[in-house]
Amino acid sequence: MALEKIKLFERTRDRWPLNVHIRPKDGVPCFEANPCLVDVYRNIEADCEPTEDWTPEDEWTNLANWAFHQALCLIAESSEEGQLRRDQVTFEMFDKCMKENLWGDDCWIAERVEYEASP
């Protein structure tokens, strides 16, 4: 698969619920979400598990879903009570999370190079 960042973002965004109800709270974590964002992430991850051998596309799917989850959480952490829409996650936010994850550990060197080279 030739990686295209924007298409990866769009495919990832489409897996998430349109809206999540956010309620700030004291402590860690600093918000409650309905549905729970971790549960949504885990369900998406389970739905994307390959039935055959693991492929590079499967790896990108997992990386992208985690980055989208992180971006949603960043928005939720500073939100008032109400609806958080998946469309609030911009490509720029997603891209920043992807880069932070790929540059966070040298085990992602090959993926980092491919991601940087993709349109």
Rank of each mutant, 00 (worst) to 15 (best):
Y115W: 08
M93Y: 14
R13N: 01
T51I: 13
H69I: 02
E52F: 14
N101E: 13
R13I: 12
R85A: 15
G27I: 02
E59I: 01
G27H: 00
L63P: 08
N62Q: 11
K25S: 03
E10N: 10
E111G: 00
A33C: 08
D14A: 13
Y115C: 05
C73A: 12
I22R: 08
M1L: 03
Q88T: 06
C73W: 10
D26F: 00
D26V: 03
R13G: 01
S78D: 10
V20Q: 01
P119S: 07
I44S: 07
W66E: 11
V89F: 07
V28F: 13
E80I: 03
W108Q: 08
E92W: 09
S79T: 07
N62P: 02
R11A: 05
D53F: 14
R42L: 15
A71N: 12
R13H: 00
E100H: 15
S78V: 11
N19V: 12
E57R: 03
A117I: 01
H21Q: 13
C107H: 13
W108K: 05
L18T: 10
D47C: 01
R112G: 06
I22E: 06
V40Q: 04
E59V: 02
V28N: 01
A64L: 09
E32H: 03
N19A: 11
E49V: 04
K7L: 11
H69V: 07
E100F: 15
I22S: 02
L8C: 04
E114P: 00
G104P: 14
R11G: 05
N101F: 15
W60T: 00
N34W: 15
R11C: 03
S79Q: 10
L63Y: 05
D53R: 12
S79I: 06
W103Y: 15
L3Q: 01
L37N: 06
